[in-house]
Computed example of a mutant assay.
Amino acid sequence: MIDLGISKLALIGVVALIVIGPEKLPRVARMAGTLLGRAQRYINDVKAEVSKEIELDELRKMQKDVQQAAQHVEQTVSQSWNETTEEIRSIGQENPVADTAVYVSTEQLARKAKDFRRKKLAKTSALPAWYKSRHGQRQHIVSGSARMARHRAKSRPPISFF
């Protein structure tokens, strides 16, 4: 940049005063100031756009890197999945009895779950009241204070000696 000191600025001012004249000097100074301000704003805008473009380029590079990493992870996962499924298929072909045992155990589990639901429903709804009362199922809901009142020791009338 141009190195302007106080002495150089004073020399430029004296030369401008002599060349332009004292009447037109304030107008020319204002014009020079506005032109200098515009030039500075334009330079700042250009700098901002260049820095934005640089940031966008960096972001695009980062996006490409992330996409490549994601594709690599996806490929390795799919490859390991395929290897695992092939191993399972080969094991299943070697030992067909194991597949039927797993299938039977799955059927048995489903049957047990269905029986459990059926038994639970039978316990709660289809039993007669005398059976429920004999085996301890509640028929009526009683609040805690009502239960306490029922089991509280009753006060006896005072016994007189006379």
Rank of each mutant, 00 (worst) to 15 (best):
R111I: 05
V97S: 15
R111G: 00
A122W: 02
R118A: 07
L121C: 08
S105P: 01
S125H: 05
A126M: 10
E107C: 06
L109S: 06
F116R: 02
R118N: 03
R111Q: 07
T124L: 14
Y103E: 15
Y103S: 14
F116I: 04
L109W: 03
R111D: 03
K120I: 04
P96G: 01
L121G: 03
V102K: 11
F116Y: 11
V102H: 10
A101D: 12
V97K: 14
D99R: 09
L121T: 14
D99I: 08
R117V: 00
K120C: 06
F116A: 09
K119C: 04
R118P: 00
A98E: 07
A98K: 00
Y103H: 12
K112E: 12
A113P: 00
Y103A: 15
A101V: 13
D99T: 09
S125M: 02
A113C: 09
R117H: 05
E107V: 09
T100F: 07
A110N: 07
K119R: 10
S125K: 02
T100W: 08
A122S: 11
K114D: 04
A126P: 01
P96D: 02
K114T: 02
K112A: 13
T106L: 12
D99E: 05
T124Q: 14
S105L: 15
K114L: 01
R118Y: 04
V104N: 15
A110Q: 12
A110F: 01
Q108I: 13
A126Y: 09
F116H: 08
A98W: 01
A110V: 04
L121I: 04
A98D: 02
E107Q: 15
K123P: 00
F116M: 08
R117D: 07
D115T: 10
K112D: 14
R111N: 05
T124N: 14
A122L: 12
Y103P: 00
K114H: 01
V102I: 15
V97G: 10
K123E: 15
T106C: 07
E107N: 12
A110T: 11
A101G: 10
T124H: 13
F116C: 03
A113Q: 15
D115N: 11
P96V: 00
A110W: 00
D115F: 05
Q108C: 06
